[in-house]
Design a protein around this nucleic acid. Structure first.
Length: 122
DNA sequence: CTTCTGACGAAAT
DNA sequence: CATTTCGCCAGAA
């Protein structure tokens, strides 16, 4: 079991959101961060870099706001991420970018762990 | 305990 | 479009 200081650690919240990204769709670090709530795109990136091999997180569906696969410390993007997306039907432009207007995941209100803004409930 | 490193994004210049 | 600044979690040594 993982130790937690609250219901979930920040990374666990991020993983929970990424797990909701459907096949054939992509999301961005910034989008994940907003859905998690108190989180930044940077944190989402850190979390992706720390995805436990135990968990089955569709981390390959998380790309940057430019619609491109982010490079790792290697200096180049992981080819496995590119292949995984192609296998799901995600199309890349000649520049190696994904059309976010077409493939970006459109989450429902319930997909959010924490409302990013006043939902108007109270 | 300290130090280092690691999948980003928005705004200003 | 390129560069700079800020944001500030988690694991390893």
């Amino acid at each position: 079991m993982m130790s937690v200081d609250g219901p979930l650690t920040l990374n666990e919240k991020i993983y929970a959101v990424v797990q909701r990204v459907p096949q054939g769709k992509v999301t961005t670090y910034g989008q994940v961060a907003k859905m998690v709530g108190k989180c930044t795109a940077r944190q989402a990136g850190y979390a992706m870099a720390a995805v436990p091999a135990d968990l089955e997180i569709p981390w390959h569906r998380v790309i940057n706001a430019q619609g491109k696969i982010s490079v790792r410390s290697d200096g180049a993007p992981d080819p496995r991420q590119h292949r995984a997306l192609l296998a799901e039907g995600v199309v890349f432009s000649p520049a190696g970018r994904v059309d976010l207007a077409r493939y970006a995941w459109q989450p429902s209100f319930e997909d959010y762990l924490q409302e990013p803004e006043e939902p108007g409930l109270g």
